[in-house]
Design a protein around this nucleic acid. Sequence first.
DNA 1: ACGTTCATGGTACGGTCGTATCACAAAACT
DNA 2: AGTTTTGTGATACGACCGTACCATGAACGT
Lengths: 203, 203
Amino acid sequence: MPRRVDHEERRTEITEALLRVAHRRGLHAVGMRDVAAEAGVSLRLVQYYFDSKEKLLLHGLRTLVERFSARTAARLAAVPGSPGPRETVEALLMAALPADEESRVFHHVYTSYAVLAMSDEALAGQPFTGDPDAAEEAVAGLLARGQADGTVPAEVDARLEAVSLLAMSAGLGTGVLVGQRDVPSAVAAIRYRLDRVFTGRAG
Amino acid sequence: MPRRVDHEERRTEITEALLRVAHRRGLHAVGMRDVAAEAGVSLRLVQYYFDSKEKLLLHGLRTLVERFSARTAARLAAVPGSPGPRETVEALLMAALPADEESRVFHHVYTSYAVLAMSDEALAGQPFTGDPDAAEEAVAGLLARGQADGTVPAEVDARLEAVSLLAMSAGLGTGVLVGQRDVPSAVAAIRYRLDRVFTGRAG
DNA sequence: ACGTTCATGGTACGGTCGTATCACAAAACT
DNA sequence: AGTTTTGTGATACGACCGTACCATGAACGT
């Protein structure tokens, strides 16, 4: 019964199936047939909507990145009150933690892509982040604002501090991901560090 | 010409072949035949010395971990002079950076194993580090020594600071690995952070 | 009304993968 | 010397994998 169908919607469904099975069985192990079964369609349809596995994978990566940026933006917008630099930076760093299931899926699959990209022709040099070091820029800016506020000491190097905070957050994230650390301990580390950066002697 | 042969040596050669090809083509893509070709032996021999691919992979992981611990220990022993806490911590954090080729290989393959372990029955719950959070213990201890010295402020929480430093180092490492950051900038971030932790007002 | 396009199913093909099997020569043991 | 063990090669097997091909019915254009 071939009713006319929305291609983009179909592609989205299949992509979501891809991400689910990639999380469940590992990206390296996902085959076209698995994706088809997960999406509840025939193998042929996966071929139909994505011409090849490579294109499917690339689309999956793009989707993943877009979704994560959107989610992070939403998180930032959801900070209550009129957030100062400290609250915003904290929200930013927390967003990089695989705390809920959606975030765990993202981190797992995203990391898989990153590892894959290190030795895969087609994936290498792919847009892994919307704007690379946009986050670095943002955090550095917020720290500078904190210095203007007087909540961040003048001796702090905003750029290096931003790099170090983001790297820490990423490191904690993978620690959580591989089960070496739990979420509360990661949150505690982030809060501790922010407490030390924002000595907060002014308002 | 079946001369009597040293099994352990043969296994080592094959394992090294495995690690080389895992770095070159990606761990997910390595097959028994690739390993055999890289080691210059027949497929049969890889089966002979390791019964199955799973055992080969597990042995590869063990080798990788042992080698890295040994290397890190050597680095620590090689710190010149009579190193204080600061120098030792710095050496520890630097050792986690994929700076030279050997280290890059380690990080790449190790990360691949970690990702694989997240969805592979046999790899999950495998000894991924000799003693988990041995590093954390060590760094925390060194920071405490610094506090006794007076080179580290008393308000520093040694444990949380250790966690944050190690997470940062790990994060910088993967940043370098995926080409998002270069080694000098990672080193700069580490030095900056250590400068701020070790305010060094005593001797 | 009819031919074309669209959406879909089924299935076959060539390749690769891990593993198993068969064969056989050199060495070691007795 | 004869037999058993050990190291090695070649090759076969069954399962998958990504892709290509063929068929077909519903919907649409004219």
